[in-house]
Amino acid sequence: MMPGATIASSSEITLITLQNCSANISFLSEIFEKIAALGVNVDMISLSPTQGAFTSLSFTIADEDLGKMLQFTSELQARHEIKMIVSSGNSKITVSDQRMKHTPGIAAAVFAAAARVSTDVRIITTSEEEVSLLVTFADYPETLTAIEQAMREPQD
């Protein structure tokens, strides 16, 4: 049993991926400054390893903010030859526990639970005390149940 583990979830989340994005930290900073100026809150952020001077940047926003983002990202695409991929209607499942930083295998248990139900995982972010999965809305109920069950099972 993982006493103390908390599982939280939220829905109506859009994943935006910018491919062929400059890996320069100043450029990335400008992107998030402009998003903040639009009044859009960013949640999950994932930066792929650079390939030369370029990278892929993925982040999530609320579905309701997609309209605000489209004009900005369209301009970004046109000016910088960035390819944008948008996936709306997703759900986020987060497992958190301060003991994770000293307990190996929690992420493995979460991933195994998602694998058992063949979850379509869009993005994963982690910290020392948290594992978050962005999943399709169609997979959300079954994945949440599988993760809840896994967190009730004894950890080796």
Rank of each mutant, 00 (worst) to 15 (best):
F32S: 05
I106G: 04
L15S: 15
T126V: 04
K83D: 12
S22A: 01
A107S: 14
G52C: 01
I85W: 00
M84N: 05
R116M: 09
S88W: 03
E75G: 09
K34A: 15
E153R: 08
T6A: 05
S48M: 08
T143K: 02
S11K: 12
L76R: 09
F32R: 04
P49A: 13
I124F: 04
S91W: 00
V117I: 10
Q98I: 11
L47F: 08
S48Q: 14
S87C: 04
T55V: 02
L66Q: 00
A150I: 12
S87V: 07
S56R: 11
G67D: 10
V86T: 14
T50W: 07
L66H: 02
S91C: 08
A109D: 08
V42S: 08
A37S: 09
A108P: 04
V86M: 06
L47G: 07
L18E: 02
Q71V: 13
V121G: 03
P141L: 11
R152Y: 06
A37D: 11
A138G: 09
S132A: 09
L66S: 00
I124S: 10
N24Y: 02
T126M: 03
V131G: 07
S22N: 01
S127H: 01
I106A: 03
T17I: 07
N24Q: 12
M100C: 11
S48K: 08
D63C: 08
K34L: 08
H80W: 06
L47C: 10
A53L: 10
L28P: 00
T126W: 04
M1R: 10
R116P: 03
L134P: 01
F32E: 07
I31H: 13
V131F: 07
P141W: 08
V110Q: 11
